[in-house]
Amino acid sequence: MPEMTLVQAVNSALREEMRRDPGMVLLGEDIGNLGGVFRATDGLLGEFGEQRVMDTPLNECGVVGVAIGMAMLGVRVCAEIQFADFVYPGFDQIVNELAKIRYRSGGQFSAPVVIRMPYGGGIRGGLYHSQSPEALFVHTAGLRVVIPSNPYDAKGLLKAALRGADPVIFMEPKRIYRAGRAEVPTEDYTVPLDCARVVRPGADVTVLAYGAMVSLCLEAADRAAAAGTELEVLDIRTLWPLDIEAVLASVRKTGRVVIVHEAPRACGYGAELAAQLCERAIDVLQAPIVRVTGADTPVPYALEAYYLPDAARVLHGVDRVLKY
């Protein structure tokens, strides 16, 4: 099995899906000759031509709006937003149009556009190349929100998204685009869009994470194990709709929960997870749920390391739920 990085896995998924569906189109800024600022679309212009790999003017409202129009008429479209931080000019098209077209038309129309966007900190990107706006999309009825944490999932989830019937916000943790290589099958496969994954089983504390936070939680789990505590690390993967059963199964086992994400805390995705658990599992909880998250500040350039959760902060959270 070949090994590839997460960004190569994304590229491979796009290439295979475009070969599979000769009508499929990519659009976004600098995705053609440059191959995208992170090279996710490297080589695709050469293989598929500029009608199908469309370099667009610098206007996210146009990227999303044009993608919606194509999808409504039956074209499979994958749009790239260069950085999640730049999605807001296209936000109205996503929230008021993309997410609502099936509903508002009584099911007559749909727009199963996949919008890919690199997100998150850890690359010294400052305020405008580091944001994690996943909660905004989870809050919008009609969207699926997917965040892979490794190359295998990135390819399988993206392929599933590109074959699905719903619009998908596909957020890629750019700090681990090239963090390591992993085995990715050459044969066709997909990863279902409603399925969390236990990355490391453990009996003492459930750690809920996704994206770049997963590997950091695994590091914390190694350190905790050395001190005699077993963490169960769950990769949420498909944030919405959420695989609630997988989360509940783990929490019923451990009774203690730490939620980790790099987005700001207030009304972040962790707030929804915590509320779901309070509603469904309060009887098994042995300690208050703890959130280890980015701060409720913009992402600072020079002090980014203080903003982002790291293994030490995860362990600090674990301590709090254990010592309660």
Binding site: G65, I68, G69, L73, D92, Q93, N96, K100, Q108, F109
Partner: peptide, 30 residues
């Protein structure tokens, strides 16, 4: 809005259908 008459469904935000029509046109050309 009626798919049968190739008449897409209106929304209240003003102007959002304009880039969508461009996408529709590109789909037809493709």
């Amino acid at each position: 809005g009626a798919a049968e008459y190739r008449f897409t469904v209106a929304s209240s935000p003003v102007g959002t259908q304009i880039p969508q029509a461009v996408g529709g046109a590109l789909a037809l050309r493709l």
